[in-house]
Design a protein around this nucleic acid. Structure first.
Length: 160
DNA sequence: ACGTTGATTGTTGAT
DNA sequence: ATCAACAATCAACGT
């Protein structure tokens, strides 16, 4: 039958090639394969180190994990495997209901907003100058968050 | 000694 | 629209 789909089809044919939990090794820090090494042209430029590298905002799951880790470690202080928390957290996470994840998602959403802000700066100045070395007093930069109404919008910080 | 892996899910960025 | 890799963690293991 016609598999038909020459072009399209957003069928599930190749929808999820990756099923394994293991993403396959996501390069940790520096494992340059000799094969595809980033061609260092004659001029070896330092691996462009971005002055402001906005790390990805933690997703709701991570936010939950941060809290969960405390609990998990509190009851399992002897646990030494990070994967233990991951598994336990993942399972629990799926157990949470939408309203329960809501607070985590809310926080994650807020993080995303900040991330966009950082990205703006990143896009604005991927590399300030050839050599990083400036901004001594100027550093304040213009990236100052002003809005921040912040206060308490919907975010409830219950500290206690 | 330093670097990397391990495991979770979600999100973001690039193609 | 879809893929792919990365976000935290933390200690143990490998080189």
């Amino acid at each position: 039958m016609t598999k038909g789909k020459g072009t399209g089809k957003t069928s599930r044919e190749v929808l999820k090639p990756v099923d394994d939990r293991k993403v396959g090794k996501r390069k940790a820090a520096s494992k340059p394969e000799k094969s595809s090494a980033p061609k260092t042209t004659k001029k070896d430029k330092k691996a462009k180190k971005d002055p402001n590298k906005p790390k990805r905002p933690p997703s709701a799951f991570f936010v939950f994990l941060e809290d969960f880790r405390k609990t998990f470690k509190a009851e399992n202080p002897n646990v030494k495997a990070v994967s233990a928390v991951g598994k336990a957290g993942g399972e629990k996470w799926k157990s949470l209901t939408k309203p329960e994840k809501a607070p985590y998602e809310a926080k994650a959403a807020k993080r995303k907003v900040e991330y966009e802000k950082l990205m703006n700066a990143y896009n604005n100045k991927p590399s300030a100058a050839d050599d990083e070395d400036e901004e001594s007093d100027k550093s304040k930069s213009e990236v100052n968050n002003e809005d921040e109404a912040s206060g308490e919008d919907d975010d409830d910080e219950d500290d206690d």
